[in-house]
């Protein structure tokens, strides 16, 4: 019989502590499977988030052995160390309880970065044809598959050092919109991401692209914003 997994899970708020559990080891087990087993069989009060379980919704991210991961697609076998799993809420965000964090600062920064679509037409206008092979569309496509999981935000050193920094996800989204020919908000968006806490704070450590579960490269998007911001306002 396979030895059970030794799992430490953060309990409580910011001043909480780790609690140990033993979880049956199974083949092809994900970290989310482990957390779900604990809640269903060991302690029903354990708080955590998940929804789709297939890597689409971005709800289940947490720190696994000190590194941010999407837990529904992280196999235990690929992240376990010395037979142990240490699970904590996502870094750089306020802890609500156990493995759940308050995502409000994360999404507030999307708004601050003007990382939302500014329509340039009305519903009476004809739908424009978007050519997939233009440089702008390729740049947008390369960055557009973000699922808002917060892994990059938790991995970012600059966010940890500067709570005012907008973070990789919001800036990555802003970059897709700068390259969206249907969008009319580039001027105010570049102003928003060029000020205090904006893209120029990025040190290009590239933790965001190292940990992004969708294999995006927010550092490259931020570099694009830096260039576009300087070109707009030398």
């Amino acid at each position: 019989m396979t030895k059970p997994l030794k799992v430490s899970i953060w309990r409580g708020g910011a001043d909480g502590d780790y609690q140990s559990f033993e979880v049956p080891a199974k083949a092809n087990q994900t970290v989310l499977d482990v957390v779900t087993w604990v809640q269903r069989h060991a302690d029903a009060t354990l708080a955590y988030r998940f929804a789709c379980r297939v890597g689409m919704c971005g709800s289940c991210a947490m720190m696994v052995n000190g590194e941010p991961r999407w837990t529904c697609r992280s196999h235990v076998s690929s992240v376990i160390r010395d037979g142990q799993l240490k699970l904590a809420p996502l870094a750089n965000l306020p802890v609500i309880r156990d493995l759940t964090v308050d995502m409000t600062p994360f999404f507030d920064k999307w708004q601050r970065a003007e990382a939302r679509f500014h329509p340039s037409m009305t519903r009476r206008d004809e739908v424009p044809a978007i050519k997939p092979d233009t440089a702008a569309r390729k740049a947008a496509d390369a960055a557009v598959e973000c699922i808002n999981c917060g892994v990059c935000y938790a991995a970012c050193d600059t966010v940890r050092w500067n709570s005012n920094y907008l973070g990789p996800a919001a800036l990555n989204r802003a970059w897709t919109l700068v390259n969206d020919e249907r969008d009319a908000g580039t001027r105010q968006r570049l102003a928003a991401v060029s000020g205090t806490g904006g893209c120029y704070n990025c040190h290009s450590h590239q933790s965001c692209q190292a940990y992004c579960p969708k294999a995006l490269n927010p550092t490259r998007s931020i570099a694009g914003l830096k260039r576009a911001g300087l070109a707009a306002k030398p």
Partner: peptide
């Protein structure tokens, strides 16, 4: 850091 400081 803002755009001006970055530029300089």
């Amino acid at each position: 850091m803002n755009a001006r400081l970055y530029y300089w």
